[in-house]
């Protein structure tokens, strides 16, 4: 038990938290942008999975991790756009369309992996590359903080930067104002001449790209290969985290960190205490359910308070 505490309060543990938080935070930000425009992007899970595989394949093909990332992002943007097409043009229910994309991604990635590598499980036979880790100048020399922040994967820095960028996008730019208006009252937006569908297309595309970052991180940073079903529900956790964070980028950061801690904790406990592996694996998802329950309860209270005014 003592050793577990020692691990949790070590800088290495927090280094790990940031690493684990990265894909969840990407997913959460992706959920935030989409839901702010009024589209519930349940396809995040599938988009991440597709991007994870695309990144692996193209990084091997071009022998460049960067080109792998680029194609992963393009694939994510396209799938986001495709969701927009299904929902906005063909008037499909967003949930059903999202589920369809997720199922397609789950089966499709295995199929593609098999064609290319002859393996249905992992891409270890593909010579894919990994995005670099990055020492932060100056900060790396500060004790503790240096250990936590420095030498993270480049995408971990990107995701922290994305929090700020998405915050500015939503609250400081005309596009963000339009996204928020469209999501909250599309009639009002339309009545002042805003092209509602155009804004929503832009938002789901951004959402797809953000999710793709998360997917690429999983197969080109977190691990160095693709394995089937490797997103393990992170897209859904992102949706939950978005709801709990009140659909704001700052909220997304805080809630994602919470999930990241739960996830890392799982890893630590696994090594420290004799608990069945499967139970430990449940930890992030239990955190999600408990978190959502607390969130919706407090929201209910809030609404009751507002109503009684």
């Amino acid at each position: 038990m003592q050793s577990v505490f020692n691990i949790i309060f070590s800088p290495d543990f927090f280094y790990d938290v940031l690493r684990v938080t990265t894909p969840i935070l990407f997913a959460t930000l992706a959920a935030t942008v989409a839901s702010r425009s009024g589209i519930f992007n349940i396809a995040l899970e599938g988009i991440m999975l597709i991007a994870a595989l695309v990144g692996v394949i193209f990084s091997a093909y071009f022998s460049s991790a960067w080109l792998g990332l680029l194609f992963a992002l393009i694939s994510g943007g396209l799938v986001g756009l495709f969701l927009g097409f299904l929902v906005l043009k063909l008037k499909t229910d967003a949930i059903l369309a999202g589920i369809a994309i997720n199922l397609m991604a789950a089966g499709g990635t295995i199929f593609l992996l098999y064609i290319i590598s002859g393996d249905r499980g992992v891409s270890s036979s593909i010579k894919s590359l990994v995005l670099p880790k990055f020492p932060l100048p100056v900060i790396k020399n500060i004790p503790i903080i240096g250990t936590i922040l420095s030498m993270q994967n480049i995408l971990t820095y990107v995701v922290l930067l994305s929090v700020i960028v998405i915050h500015i996008l939503l609250y400081k730019t005309p596009l963000g104002l339009k996204i928020r208006a469209v999501g909250e009252n599309p009639n009002a937006a339309e009545s002042v001449g805003i092209n509602v569908h155009k804004i929503q297309y832009i938002a789901v595309t951004i959402s797809g790209i953000l999710a793709a970052f998360g997917g690429a991180f999983l197969s080109m940073g977190y691990l160095s290969m693709f394995s089937n079903g490797m997103t393990a529900g992170r897209g859904f956790i992102g949706l939950a985290a978005d709801a709990m964070g009140g659909s704001t980028p700052i909220g997304a950061l805080l809630v994602s960190l919470l999930f990241g801690i739960a996830d890392s904790m799982g890893n630590v406990i696994q090594t420290g205490i004799k608990i069945p592996y499967e139970i430990v694996q449940m930890l992030p998802y239990i955190t999600t359910i408990v978190g959502l329950a607390i969130f919706s309860y407090s929201k209910k209270k809030q609404i009751e308070k507002l109503k009684s005014k």
Partner: peptide, 12 residues
């Protein structure tokens, strides 16, 4: 809304 004044071309 819809006719936002801008600064630096990018921001509201």
């Amino acid at each position: 809304l819809g006719v936002e004044p801008r600064k630096f071309g990018l921001f509201t």
